[in-house]
Design a protein around this nucleic acid. Structure first.
Lengths: 344, 344
DNA sequence: TTGAAAGCGGTACCAG
DNA sequence: CTGGTACCGCTTTCAA
């Protein structure tokens, strides 16, 4: 069923039918009623491609995910982010176009997506400290919002990020106040901006306290359970092992727990822990924390997804406002956890 | 840059340029060279909507995800599946369109997606024992592949599933052979087909061994760490707790470990475990298993993603062959784990 | 081997 | 308030 058929069925012109369905004011209430009734009866929905061709808009948003051994998509954060973003998209009639590309082909993917006019805007995932994608998207004039930011230059474009530096610096401060001097960090891949900021936060706190940062206590890799396990083992094997760890994600923290358990170490007593918690659905259930969170910095990835999506839609509506959309979500240091009071 | 501009730049007709770029044979090698060179120089890529409108194909595949409190997307399995499917899509020039819809609006979402001609085919996620979507998609003639299957009727449509019944029945057999009589199951939501099949597998094995199945040992919920923890606590609190558990996912298993640990129970000695392992990237790293897998049934969700995608593309090319694409991926019982020999 | 022109299914301008 | 018509950018007959 297409517009032509529908309108001839009604004995009206395509113009009128189109107007009736799109809520234009100049159509009489009577005909609008007839038209919508008939449309529903025949399950008419306008052909998305044709409409897009005519209006110049696709009503879909692109998410380009680099596919590599160290890829974003294995990160379960991605699922929750998508869940949040989708809420906004579907409420506004947008779809989400996922393009998974080999790492080196990323720039070309953005160019192509733009040239083909397949999306109205783009979310940039996993920005690096200086990320070529931002300049590229700016250059080709594709509206975009970055989840995270590019520390080298965080002005003039839209981003939604958490306060990584402050949050992780607070975490370190907390441990320092408790008397810890040998503090480790199990971080995400430090090619990524967020991980660098987290590291910087920890280092600042140490420096401010006059503690020499020990590079061997700072480990960084993909945020998997396996990394948490191996890293903890390695650190505990040092002649002077750290007495406290700051951990970049719950899933890493689960690996830490496994390692500690194998050695009979009591977490929170023999090894103190502050874990960053992205509030991921598959770990949580209700308000319960299913991980060794004794003290946590908390933020919600799903909120970030919602916010990125909403800002992007606003930017698409008014492209010149992009530079104004810079949101820092606050992750706070939360003492204790649902599994008991803070034993750090 | 569009076709008209490009062709006038070359002093050729749109027809010729189009043919040159799309590899039609009737164009001379000389002009083809010139055309492709010029196209690359100006970063020309055909407008996807216009092309789709002309050809009737969108070159994109739909994934409709129900968004509810118990939604698929929180399941990290989804990420890995998408990673696998995307490999196939990008290798074939397809994009992936994610539509997240409220639960009750799902049928309408499929109808709309079809009416708007926004995708060439669809992957069905999380089928139930009898799932209305399958009849619906058949009726409206949209090519589709089901990840999983509908036990009520698994003929006449394409699916990729694992051998849930057999795998879980083997798992139970194994435990029975070791002398266990009180065997529990921590299962996914039993509104979903795969979970029902897993339960059926366990029950068959118990029945065959003349063991009365105890409903109170069979727990089912979303597959989160929290569920694993709570369920294990509840089971261990029974007056006659189970001596062995079969666990439907690694993430549940992690919760089991937490519960066991809190009570000082040695897994593999005081509580035996067989865990199904979907080989998810964020838990694994290389070949290491980051969970309490003492004996596992293994399958790869990523493989399933690849296979679904490939089959769907084949079906789109030859729609009448759909009924032939029924693939059962084998999950085997693997004794032991990388963390040591099987201690069950 | 090349080109003109008719769609594909809508939207939006301009007349009436 | 309604209708005719010219696009949107590409593919694809049909003629040359």
């Amino acid at each position: 069923m297409n517009l032509k058929e529908l309108s001839s069925l009604l004995g009206l012109s395509q113009t009128t039918v189109s107007r009736a369905l799109n809520g234009y004011p100049e159509v009489s209430e009577a005909t609008r009623k007839k038209v919508t009734a008939m449309a529903r009866a025949h399950g008419y929905a306008p052909n998305a491609r044709a409409r897009g061709l005519a209006t110049g808009r696709t009503m879909s948003i692109g998410h380009v995910i680099p596919l590599s051994t160290r890829h974003e998509i294995v990160n379960p954060v991605f699922s929750d982010f998508v869940a949040g973003a989708s809420e906004i998209y579907s409420a506004n009639g947008y779809d989400m176009l996922l393009t998974v590309v080999p790492d080196q082909g990323e720039a070309e993917a953005y160019r192509k997506i733009t040239a083909r006019q397949t999306v109205d805007g783009v979310i940039v995932h996993g920005p690096k400290a200086q990320d070529g994608r931002i300049a590229l998207l700016r250059e080709i004039g594709m509206p975009f919002v970055v989840h995270g930011r590019m520390s080298a230059d965080d002005t003039g474009y839209a981003w939604v990020d958490m306060n990584n530096v402050t949050a992780f610096s607070c975490a370190a401060d907390c441990l320092i106040d408790l008397g810890h001097r040998r503090i480790g960090l199990l971080n995400g891949l430090e090619t990524l901006d967020f991980a660098l900021r987290r590291r910087e936060g920890v280092q600042r706190a140490l420096a401010a306290a006059g503690i020499e940062a020990q590079a061997r206590y700072f480990l960084s890799d993909e945020m998997t359970e396996g990394f948490g396990y191996r890293a903890t083992c390695a650190l505990l094997d040092l002649d002077e092992p750290p007495t406290a760890l700051i951990v970049s994600s719950l899933i890493i923290g689960i690996g830490v727990r496994r390692a500690a358990e194998e050695r009979g170490l009591k977490l929170g007593r023999e090894l103190s822990l502050i874990v960053h918690d992205d509030d991921l659905s598959y770990l949580r259930n209700g308000s319960e924390t299913g991980a060794p969170v004794f003290t946590a910095t908390q933020s919600s990835v799903r909120d970030a997804g919602r916010m990125c999506a909403q800002n992007l839609l606003d930017i698409i509506a008014a492209p010149d406002t992009a530079a104004r959309f810079q949101t820092e979500l606050e992750a706070k240091l939360v003492m204790g956890s649902s599994t008991g009071p803070c034993p750090v």
